[in-house]
Nucleic acid binder design. Structure first.
Lengths: 214, 214
DNA sequence: CCAAACTGATGACAAATGTCATGATTCTAG
DNA sequence: CTAGAATCATGACATTTGTCATCAGTTTGG
């Protein structure tokens, strides 16, 4: 049995969704909220498996509420239901840690599938919304980190350090090398990456996902 | 009428998909390929609206084929059909520019919907695959770039340049300032961001999404 | 065994970077 | 009007960075 909290500022939508969801035998609407603040309180009170969250709400918007709920109850799943794909808060909600995004014109069967799937850890993204995610991604992860192969272990280690913003002295300490040696590795690194200086190398590293994993 | 090219190395899958797709009156299977190379040729020959692409294929895998096709025919949509969510090539295909990702156990109706939606520019991501995208995103876009408010226009402009890897001279040229002035702005920037050098500032900038938009 | 590659190191040098003090304009609020 | 901002600029200076030539062990493949 899936326990669910519903948050939307429009009464009609709330009531409609409630009916729609309770047609499903293994879904139980544990609480209904009219704004983000109520959603947070409902979540704390009922500890639901999943929260269906509207974005545009008074008091506390969906993104803020998502962040607040996840801070208290990190295992709760948040499925965002929004009206417009251009909603400026989609990005916020994404960052706040929402697990899924649906448009309100999603057919009932899809909504039910998304609710159940989200509880199981899947991530449902409406096709109209997914585009921005894909584009965003392109900005960051480079198409072909082909140079990863050209770099030897040391150079790769140095690049990781660069991507973390260390200077030569810190890198030397970190890798137990002399500073001069580090300078040499940085130098050959720059040549292989075909960049002009450590900053450009660091940017490449960050964009390729280095610099996060120690 | 949607013209479609199908690429999969398994005969059964090819035949099954062909039958399944042609049940739909407004979809026409223009070509069938057994590997990536054939897919590329088929695409060049038939100029389809969309290519259904398997990832694991001999000769040229799906990701490479995707990249090759998009290079020649940038308006073609590529919908990837894969068997496993852990497929190591998913990332490659994503970077190669595929517009959608489905698992092969997707029901027929969803497949049809995805094909039509993808042609219309939507992005269908299987819920099991979308997760990695969301996680990836978390690494990069910082939740609260609070310092963004503390920076004035010039400093922000300089930070953008830093995030693009420009040196002081290039920044000066770009913003029509003297190099010395740029050095001053960089200096105050570093203080406000509480970092030690331009590399660390650039990393912050990149992680916050600057450095992409001019 | 020997050449080649790899790894780590030094010193010297030019260029880029970061910090500071200081000035000149211009704009704005009291 | 005037003090104080914001903006742009200089020059001087110490430090960091990047490049190069060179050297010395160690490993490895032929």
């Amino acid at each position: 049995m899936i326990r669910l909290v519903l948050a939307d500022d429009q009464a009609l939508v709330r009531d409609g969704l409630k009916l729609l969801l309770e047609l499903e035998p293994d879904i139980m609407v544990a609480g209904i909220a009219e704004n983000g603040l109520q959603a947070l309180n409902m979540a704390k009170q009922h500890k639901p498996d999943i929260v269906l969250m509207d974005l545009n709400m008074p008091e506390m918007n969906g993104a803020e509420a998502t962040r607040a709920i996840l801070k208290e109850l990190p295992n709760t799943k948040i499925l965002v239901l929004t009206t417009y794909t251009t909603d400026q808060w989609i990005n916020d909600a994404l960052n706040a840690g929402a697990q899924g995004f649906l448009l309100k014109d999603t057919p009932r069967e899809d909504l039910i599938r998304a609710v159940k799937g989200t509880v199981e850890g899947k991530n449902f993204l409406d096709p109209q919304i997914a585009g921005s995610l894909l584009k965003n991604r392109e900005q960051f992860s480079n198409e072909a980190p082909s140079w990863l192969n050209e770099l030897n272990d040391r150079e790769l280690a140095v690049l990781k350090c660069l991507a973390q913003g260390l200077n030569n002295q810190q890198i030397a300490a970190s890798l137990f090398l002399s500073e001069g040696t580090v300078r040499n590795y940085v130098s050959s690194l720059l040549a292989k990456l075909e960049v002009q200086d450590r900053t450009q190398a660091a940017i490449l590293g960050v964009k390729s996902g280095l610099g996060n994993s120690k």
